[in-house]
């Protein structure tokens, strides 16, 4: 499923990286530990996290993740938004908590 469809269906908000929403999402990975995400996420995964600092962009870029969903209505730092735009990494916001976002995402992708 394409990222833009997921954004539409889950009513998520695109915060940065608008140019890369056509990407295919292969699954999701939920974690707030960067080493865990680097080690275990897979290419095309949508990363669900509460981290908002700029270093999440390098992680997404290195693992070719489809994008990052920041949960709980948390606002990414200014330099995170800037990096996401520079590196073309979709940064997406959700009002819901990680449990809900991951649950809905799982259902959507596996259906």
């Amino acid at each position: 499923m394409k990222l833009k469809e997921i954004i539409e269906k889950l009513q998520l908000k695109v915060l940065a990286g608008q140019d890369k929403l056509d990407v295919e999402v292969t699954g999701g990975y939920t974690s707030d530990l960067l080493s865990d995400v680097i080690a275990n996420s897979k290419e095309g995964n949508l990363w669900v996290t509460l981290q908002t600092h700029q270093n999440i962009i390098a992680v997404a870029k290195l693992k070719d993740l489809a994008g990052i969903i920041i949960v709980n209505n948390r606002e990414p730092d200014e330099d995170t938004l800037q990096k996401a735009n520079e590196e073309n990494v979709p940064l997406i916001g959700s009002e819901e908590m990680a449990y809900e976002v991951a649950g809905k995402l799982y259902e959507l992708i596996s259906s």
Binding site: L33, L34, S35, D36, I38, A39, Q51, H53, N55, I56
Partner: peptide, 15 residues
């Protein structure tokens, strides 16, 4: 708090 320090760095390199 930034999500570092999981104690996975060196083991990840080795793996």
């Amino acid at each position: 708090e930034m999500g570092f320090g999981a104690g996975m760095g060196l083991p990840n390199i080795k793996k």
